[in-house]
């Protein structure tokens, strides 16, 4: 029973991360793409948690949810918001 629940949890998180990564690549509004990539990395952190690696989660969440969106939003503020073609 526990294995089935754990596998369903992993499936939900993995599918969500794939969909969020696809949307982050396709999106033309770069602020939206940053938010989608934050969803994707948060889901990766939860997958690490379920696979019993809490030490990786402790490093992965501050870097992926805290540092990378801050740097990317700073860069977007200095340049353009919409991706041209």
């Amino acid at each position: 029973m526990l294995e089935i629940f754990t596998l369903s949890l992993l499936t939900l998180f993995a599918i969500t991360s794939v969909v969020a990564a696809y949307l982050a690549i396709r999106e033309r509004d770069l602020v939206k793409a940053v938010v989608y990539s934050a969803i994707q990395s948060a889901m990766y952190a939860l997958i690490y948690y379920v696979l019993m690696a809490p030490d990786i989660v402790l490093v992965y969440i501050p870097v992926s949810v805290g540092l990378i969106p801050a740097v990317l939003l700073f860069v977007i503020k200095k340049t353009e918001r919409y991706e041209g073609d």
Partner: peptide, 16 residues
């Protein structure tokens, strides 16, 4: 991990 998650998601709010 729960403490870290609850603290850092707040930062995303503030940035956006």
């Amino acid at each position: 991990c729960a403490v870290v998650l609850a603290l850092w998601v707040y930062a995303l709010d503030i940035y956006v």
